[in-house]
Amino acid sequence: MSKPYAIRTALTEVLDGLVEGDPFPPERELAARFGVARETVRQAVHELLVEGLVERRGRGTVVSKPKLVQPLSLRSYTEGAVKMGRKPGRLLVTWEDVEPSPELTAALDVAPGELVMHLERVLLADGQRIGLESTYLPRHRFGAFTETFDPTTSLYAAIRATGVTFDRAVERVETVLASPREAGLLESTTAMPMLRLHRRSVDTEGRPIEVVRSLYRGDRVAFEALLDDRDQ
């Protein structure tokens, strides 16, 4: 067994004896305990940080909360957070009308030159910044939201309240690194792996509802999907 792997395994065993919020031993102490260089310990602790098992708090490191597990389904982030007993929240970053790209024009089925609504929000769970959500909506369908929608609440609930029914969506998930702006909004770094989701949703008549591009901190969020072969 290689030394880095052995130290990584040893640190996992240290975690087994701790609970959420407990301080994690400092690198100097761990290096002395296991008889290895601090750089070896530092690398192993960095892996724990990337996996979301520990987090920096002030000048120290503590055991993290479990990751927020979100379903890959036509449910809002709010529903997923509440299901796990977490308190959802949102911070408004941008809400404006924008000229869409040709790709976005086609995806939302809007007329050439027609503006679309762009809503950008930081997603919170128990006050922690976990994601950055950028939503594009056809203005001819949801223009009234400018006057009626509270951006700190669930957008999906507001859409459903208008009588629109979500039918299906195509969603793609990929691993990326955040831009400096995105990392700043998420209180992270450009070295932290992120999960980027691209979603296009339509209603029961096949009309586009939204195009969403979401960025989630890989150390705080995981995704799951229910799979079966009943239709095979």
Rank of each mutant, 00 (worst) to 15 (best):
M1Y: 09
M1I: 13
R8F: 14
R8C: 10
E13M: 06
E13G: 05
D16R: 11
V19R: 13
E20I: 08
E20P: 04
G21D: 12
D22W: 07
P25N: 09
E27S: 14
F34Q: 06
V36Q: 15
T40N: 15
V45S: 06
H46F: 10
H46E: 15
E47Y: 01
L48A: 10
L49G: 08
L53W: 01
E55Y: 09
R56A: 09
R59L: 06
R59V: 01
G60T: 07
T61K: 08
T61Q: 10
P66L: 03
K67Y: 00
L74A: 02
L74P: 05
L74D: 04
G80A: 08
A81S: 05
K83D: 06
G85L: 01
G85P: 01
G85Q: 01
R86Q: 07
K87S: 08
R90Y: 11
L92V: 02
W95Y: 15
E96N: 12
E96T: 12
E99H: 14
P100I: 08
P100L: 11
L104Q: 13
T105N: 07
A107F: 09
V122W: 06
L124Q: 00
R129F: 03
I130W: 02
S134E: 10
T135S: 11
L137V: 12
H140P: 01
H140A: 12
R141W: 07
F142D: 05
F145K: 04
Y156E: 07
I159E: 09
A161V: 05
G163Y: 11
T165Y: 14
R168V: 14
E171H: 01
A178D: 03
R181N: 03
E182N: 04
A183L: 04
E187K: 13
S188D: 08
A191D: 10
M192I: 03
H198I: 08
R199Y: 11
R199V: 02
S201V: 13
S201N: 06
S201E: 02
V212F: 03
S214L: 05
L215G: 04
L215W: 00
Y216P: 01
Y216F: 06
D219I: 00
A222K: 00
L226M: 03
D229N: 12
D231S: 14
